[in-house]
Amino acid sequence: MSSLTFTLKEVTRQRIDCSPLTPNKLADKSLADIAKIQLVTGNLSERADALFIITEGDSQSIKFKGSNSKLDFIGHNMTKGKISVDGDVGAYFGIFMEGGLLSVKGNSFIYTGCEMKGGQIKVNGDAGDFIGGARPGRRNGMTGGTVIVTGNAGARAGDHMRRGMILIEGNTGDYCGSRMISGTIAVQGDCGRHLGYAMKRGTILLNQMPTRGITANFNDCGTHTLGYLALLFTSFKKLDTTFSRVDNFSRVRRYAGDLAGIGMGEILVKI
């Protein structure tokens, strides 16, 4: 069965809240019912079929076509099924997600994987600020699952991240791993300023020493062979990412910080 497909009719001026269009929420809904779903855009709400051409298909495999960076909350709270998006997506891609598969052929705006608990998000492009972050006032960002970004990440990737994995094939912006509580961020490219700022625990694994080096709020713990990295790389193997092809390494230079706080975070740089 082909995918249930939402093709955006025209680029709207206001953002569109797409949270109602997930496999969970559309399961067992008729096409007519789906067409009637109200989507908030600006200070109005509009019927789904006013904004999208809806093509019947498997509600457990949803496609968005002609999407752009104003489509927010795609994959909101989903626990199963998959959504794939042609184009860019807006903010909060995969917010609260617990399971299933989300992917976008394009860029995502801020808060990709915000407070996600499980499942997998793949951004085949660049992701905006606050990947896996926590909304203001909340203390825990993502607590499980995997976010893969094939391009570059914005600032504050993994801010308040508590568990799970963020794999960035390109470069990261500033403050990668800021206020990280735990979990793993792996980066193949370069990192911006203030790497690991206010990090409590967790691991930032780097394929190369960042151009800017490591800041003074991290102390060098020397070079080591860390056995657990073998397990980590094994776990990458089954993921659809260039990380599955990265040569395993377990020799790293280890930096511990941010010393301002409990200083239990680590930046591991391949040597």
Binding site: Y197, T215, A216, A260, G263
Partner: peptide
């Protein structure tokens, strides 16, 4: 400045 503040707090 962010790093300087972090080191000061440490």
């Amino acid at each position: 400045l962010p790093e300087v503040l972090s080191v000061l707090r440490a």
